[in-house]
Lab assay of single mutants.
Amino acid sequence: MLDDRARMEAAKKEKVEQILAEFQLQEEDLKKVMRRMQKEMDRGLRLETHEEASVKMLPTYVRSTPEGSEVGDFLSLDLGGTNFRVMLVKVGEGEEGQWSVKTKHQMYSIPEDAMTGTAEMLFDYISECISDFLDKHQMKHKKLPLGFTFSFPVRHEDIDKGILLNWTKGFKASGAEGNNVVGLLRDAIKRRGDFEMDVVAMVNDTVATMISCYYEDHQCEVGMIVGTGCNACYMEEMQNVELVEGDEGRMCVNTEWGAFGDSGELDEFLLEYDRLVDESSANPGQQLYEKLIGGKYMGELVRLVLLRLVDENLLFHGEASEQLRTRGAFETRFVSQVESDTGDRKQIYNILSTLGLRPSTTDCDIVRRACESVSTRAAHMCSAGLAGVINRMRESRSEDVMRITVGVDGSVYKLHPSFKERFHASVRRLTPSCEITFIESEEGSGRGAALVSAVACKKACMLGQ
């Protein structure tokens, strides 16, 4: 009897593995994704193909990295998701002549009506938060230079001027797309009239992360975010950046690689679950690469896999709870928690219980395998993109072996128990001629924006502006 049951459990697990095998990517698959990513990057950089390229390769006008001589107080704003952060950054000489960066910050959550109302409502709310922060720190009387981390696709015309191309991540505030974001912020500050600010720089969160990590390690020339969304930036040779005049030196390019796949480059790798996630998203047909990796989508992918296993009578005796059938019910943090389970399955059992399920031991094991399959594919897909960037940098610099540091931020990278190990191992397999160091950014977005502002202020002083 026991043997029969054991055989049935083994057969069930084997069927589960057959279904989950769809998520496995072979090294040849990853090399294919990497080569296609490089081709799209090239198209994004070139003037004649930029418009139709899915990977936009947006110039950021960040050319210099901090040298350690900029000092002063800077205000930093960070808008990239449902939370908005205001930070005071003091850049100065530390002990023994070292450079020191001290920060104080406060988080504000953005109400739904500000995210989806008008641009005026959104930026009025942001300036209200700045006003509140300055009151708390008794700094209303000071006109501070301000660095703005704005983590949406922007076409820069200068370091302090950028046109919002399109909202992502659930934002829909009308009247912002096609307009200068810094102008919208300046107008809102003017409307309030109770404080003055000098907006000197606007950067993407990947750029802010790279600059913040450069402060720790001067070989950091790539910034990457794996959180709600997924994106990367890197220092490109100016001669390859056709959208900006000049051939000397390097400029940081914001790849906006989340949109890779929007022209069909990933079609052969998309599964039924991916198509369902895409169809029910706020932007169907867009940001397809990001939807395979980002935390906004990972939990939902797992939920759809679990429903398939229920329908195949391989999980929960073929019956799903009402909660499990509800879109968004299986949160991405559950994926991390399930994979963090120590082996007694308590954590998995508790999560499934909150979803109205009474799982068996085998159910718990199957749910864990589903989570591992989805998150491992995410790590491997992400590795193909980064390997594409790094191999490109090595080739354009004609280096036999390139040493490089990548600064990384984002909740999936930082909080998932195995993502970074799987990701690092896969990147290294795909970049055999590179020695890569990964560092995690601390308060990256805010500190990085302030350091970019410090560079901009120093330049302005040198130019006598």
Rank of each mutant, 00 (worst) to 15 (best):
L2A: 09
R5A: 15
R5N: 09
R5Q: 15
A6Q: 08
R7E: 15
E9M: 10
A10V: 13
E14F: 11
E14W: 04
E17A: 07
E17T: 11
Q18E: 13
Q18G: 08
I19T: 14
L20S: 00
E22S: 04
E22D: 15
F23M: 06
L25R: 01
Q26G: 10
E27A: 15
E28F: 15
K31H: 03
K32I: 11
M34D: 03
M34R: 05
D42E: 09
G44M: 01
R46P: 00
T49D: 06
T49F: 09
H50E: 11
E51D: 04
E51I: 04
E52K: 15
A53G: 04
K56D: 01
L58D: 13
L58I: 11
L58T: 04
V62P: 02
R63L: 10
S64K: 14
E67R: 07
G68V: 10
S69R: 06
E70Y: 13
V71M: 15
D73C: 01
D73Q: 03
D73T: 06
D73N: 06
F74E: 01
S76A: 09
L77F: 07
L77H: 06
L77D: 05
L77I: 09
D78E: 15
D78L: 06
G80P: 02
G80I: 07
G81W: 13
G81K: 11
G81R: 08
G81L: 02
V86T: 08
V86C: 09
M87V: 12
K90E: 07
V91Y: 05
E93L: 14
E93V: 14
E96R: 12
E96L: 12
G97F: 15
Q98Y: 10
T103F: 08
H105Y: 12
Y108M: 01
Y108Q: 02
Y108V: 04
Y108F: 15
I110Y: 05
P111F: 02
E112Q: 09
D113G: 14
D113Y: 13
D113C: 13
A114F: 10
A114S: 07
M115E: 04
M115T: 09
G117F: 10
G117C: 01
T118I: 03
A119K: 11
E120L: 04
E120M: 03
M121R: 14
M121Y: 06
Y125W: 07
Y125L: 07
I126R: 00
S127H: 02
S127P: 00
S131I: 05
D132T: 04
D132N: 07
F133S: 02
D135L: 05
K136V: 11
K136H: 04
K136Y: 06
K136L: 10
M139Q: 07
M139T: 09
M139W: 05
K140Y: 05
H141C: 11
K142R: 10
T149S: 14
T149Q: 10
F150T: 11
V154C: 13
H156F: 06
E157Y: 06
D158G: 09
D160S: 13
I163C: 14
I163Q: 15
I163R: 14
L165N: 15
W167M: 11
K169N: 02
G170M: 15
F171H: 10
K172M: 12
A173H: 07
S174L: 11
G178Q: 11
N180F: 12
G183L: 10
L184V: 09
L185Y: 08
R186D: 06
G193Y: 01
D194L: 15
A201V: 11
V203H: 07
N204M: 05
D205V: 03
V207G: 01
V207K: 05
A208V: 06
A208C: 10
A208P: 04
T209V: 05
I211G: 01
C213L: 07
Y214I: 10
Y215I: 06
E216Q: 05
E216G: 09
D217T: 08
H218D: 10
C220M: 02
C220N: 02
E221I: 05
I225M: 09
T228E: 11
T228V: 09
C230F: 04
C233T: 04
E237H: 08
E237S: 08
Q239H: 13
E245Y: 08
E245P: 08
E248G: 06
G249N: 00
M251Q: 05
F260Q: 01
D267Q: 09
E268M: 12
E268Q: 12
E268V: 10
L270W: 08
L270S: 12
L270C: 05
E272F: 09
E272G: 07
D274I: 00
L276M: 12
D278R: 00
A282N: 14
G285W: 01
G285R: 13
K291T: 01
I293H: 12
G295R: 08
K296P: 05
E300S: 00
L301Q: 10
V305Y: 01
L309E: 00
V310F: 04
V310P: 02
E312P: 01
N313M: 06
L315R: 00
L315E: 00
L315F: 01
G318N: 12
S321G: 13
S321V: 13
L324F: 11
L324M: 03
T326C: 10
T326E: 15
T326H: 13
R327S: 14
R327T: 13
A329R: 11
F330C: 05
F330R: 00
T332C: 08
T332R: 08
V335E: 00
V338Q: 00
S340P: 01
D341E: 09
G343L: 05
D344M: 05
D344L: 04
Q347S: 09
I348H: 01
Y349C: 11
N350R: 06
I351M: 09
L352N: 03
S353A: 15
T354A: 06
G356V: 02
R358I: 07
D363E: 06
I366K: 02
I366R: 09
R368P: 01
R369W: 07
R369P: 00
A370R: 00
S373G: 13
V374P: 00
S375Y: 10
T376D: 03
R377I: 00
A378G: 12
A378F: 02
A379H: 00
A379D: 01
M381E: 00
C382Q: 02
S383W: 00
S383Q: 00
A384H: 00
L386K: 00
L386S: 02
G388A: 12
I390M: 10
S396C: 12
S398I: 09
V401E: 15
V401N: 07
M402Y: 07
T405Q: 08
D409L: 06
G410A: 04
G410L: 11
G410V: 07
V412S: 09
Y413G: 01
L415M: 12
H416R: 06
H416E: 03
S418D: 12
K420P: 10
E421I: 14
R422S: 10
H424V: 01
A425C: 13
R429D: 12
L430N: 03
S433L: 09
E435R: 09
I436T: 04
I439D: 05
I439H: 09
S441D: 06
E443V: 10
G444M: 05
S445G: 13
V452E: 03
V452W: 13
A454H: 09
C457T: 15
K459T: 10
K459G: 10
C461K: 14
Q465F: 06
